[in-house]
Design a binder for these strands. Structure first.
Length: 408
RNA sequence: CGGGCUGUGGUAUAACGGUAUUACGCAUGGCUGGGGGUCAUGUAACCCGGGUUCAACUCCCGGCAGCCCGACCA
């Protein structure tokens, strides 16, 4: 993409109404636009990152057996009354609105009911199970207090997968598979080294749920981490009996602030029973479906990556989710060579952000490249010998000259 | 939802009960041309409503909005 085609602009000033580093950088670099507290529009650069994160998650979900679909955002009152989660007294962060015809609808704040309800139409036999549908979707929560930029929004983009299994054993097998898939997602987006499997309260159907907590001071959870094993417990279950059960020594744990970038939990029959979601087993008797829930907030995850990997100059994107691999800077008289290199790289399939602005100084272009954070900066300028290009990694200070042909 | 702080050009800010400051951006032109360069000219603002006052961006009340702390986070 040519910079002159990209309508967003970078900003030097820190937004006055953002204290969170992730929002500050994403706004200054032009990845997102703040609509209101807790609500952000994804601008062209931001959407490219979002799409890459989505593709990684989709890949991992599909590999684990997931099947993608898309549930509606508008949800009907009837469905949620089945599980007693329509009332504002029970769920206080619903966004609700009215139909012209008089009925009430809610905007999805989670998906359990939607899936349970839908699947009653399609599941009737043990031959129909297990199934693992999931979707990517915007979710709405009327938070009393959104905060920390992208980390806690009122509207956010997530992936939710639900497992529908015949037995506890079948459920557990998949649950373990998802743990691995999540591990892989966080590794691939570049924060695996800071993300820990964390035991949290499990509700009525299992003792624990599992969270994936990324350690960052910007987080809002407190976890107790055993650095040896990489296992953590959420503050909410930090008790002697729990530690004993998990084989953790209290003295070995360190307290950390972290953000929950993913969570998985067993739902048992909490939702399948109210919807009559059952199947007939081999003997013809009705059995409730065993469910599990697996969520990842993509917008939050992106915010966490920025919090964890940025430096004083700007964002440092991991290759896998960077908006572009190359940030090509062309200075003054090298315009023609720049155009050719850009065209050649794109033709070869590379993703390139080409700073072709004719009226910007070198300093400004370099500062923007650092702020935007693509992994590789390529420079063509007065110091660059013919046939060569300066190659600099975002994570390194010095650049080196390489032959243009080395770039493919 | 409780508490605190804050609302001034596109962005970031200053002052003042009486003509609204500066920087960035943007526009035009010149000089520049490898880490946000420089000169000139221009452009653009007091959140909304009410009150006090001769006069309110400024003080008071209410609303709305933003940030922070706490509560909450299915």
């Amino acid at each position: 993409m040519r910079f002159t085609h990209l309508f967003t602009k970078t900003r030097k000033e820190v937004p006055a109404d953002e204290a969170a580093r992730n929002a500050e950088l994403l706004i200054r670099a032009g990845f997102v636009f703040k609509e209101m507290a807790g609500v952000y529009t994804f601008l062209p650069l931001g959407l490219r990152v979002l799409n890459k994160v989505e593709a990684i998650i989709r890949d991992e979900m599909n590999k684990a057996g997931g099947i993608e679909m898309r549930t509606s955002v508008l949800q009907s009152k009837d469905v949620w009354e089945r599980t007693d989660r329509w009332s504002d007294d029970v769920v206080d962060n619903w966004f609700k609105t009215k139909l012209k015809t008089g009925g009430e609808v809610g905007l999805s704040f989670t998906n359990e009911e939607a899936y349970s309800n839908i699947l009653t139409q399609y599941v009737s036999s043990y031959k129909d199970l297990p199934i693992y549908p999931y979707d990517f979707k915007s979710i709405f929560r009327n938070e009393a207090r959104s905060k920390s930029g992208m980390l806690r929004g009122r509207e956010f983009y997530w992936k939710a997968l639900y497992s529908f299994s015949k037995t506890d054993a079948e459920h557990t097998e998949f649950y373990e598979k998802m743990k691995a898939a999540y591990r892989s997602v966080f590794d691939r987006v570049g924060i695996g080294h800071r993300t820990y499997l964390t035991f949290a309260s499990g509700g009525s159907f299992s003792k624990f749920s599992h969270e994936f907590q990324a350690v960052t001071p910007a987080g809002e959870d407190t976890i107790y981490l055993d650095e040896q094993s990489g296992i953590a417990v959420n503050k909410e279950v930090h008790a002697d009996e729990v530690l004993a059960e998990l084989g953790l020594q209290r003295d070995a744990l360190v307290e950390r602030t972290a953000i929950e970038v993913g969570n998985i939990f067993s739902l048992g029959t909490r939702f399948s029973v109210p919807f009559g979601l059952e199947y007939q087993d081999e003997h013809g008797s009705a059995q409730p479906v065993i469910m599990g829930s697996y969520g990842i907030g993509l917008s939050r995850l992106i915010g966490a990556v920025v919090e964890i990997l940025s430096d004083e100059k700007g964002i440092v994107w991991p290759q896998a989710i960077a908006p572009f691999t190359y940030h090509l800077v062309v200075l003054g008289e090298k315009r023609e060579e720049g155009d050719k290199l850009y065209t050649d790289l794109v033709a070869a399939g590379a993703e390139v952000l080409y700073d072709d602005r004719p009226d910007k100084s070198a300093g400004e272009k370099f500062a923007d490249a650092d702020l935007i954070g693509c992994p590789v900066r390529l420079t063509l300028g007065g110091k660059t010998e013919a046939g060569k290009v300066e190659y600099k990694l975002r994570t390194e200070r010095e650049s080196r000259l390489i032959a243009v042909s080395e770039l493919r």
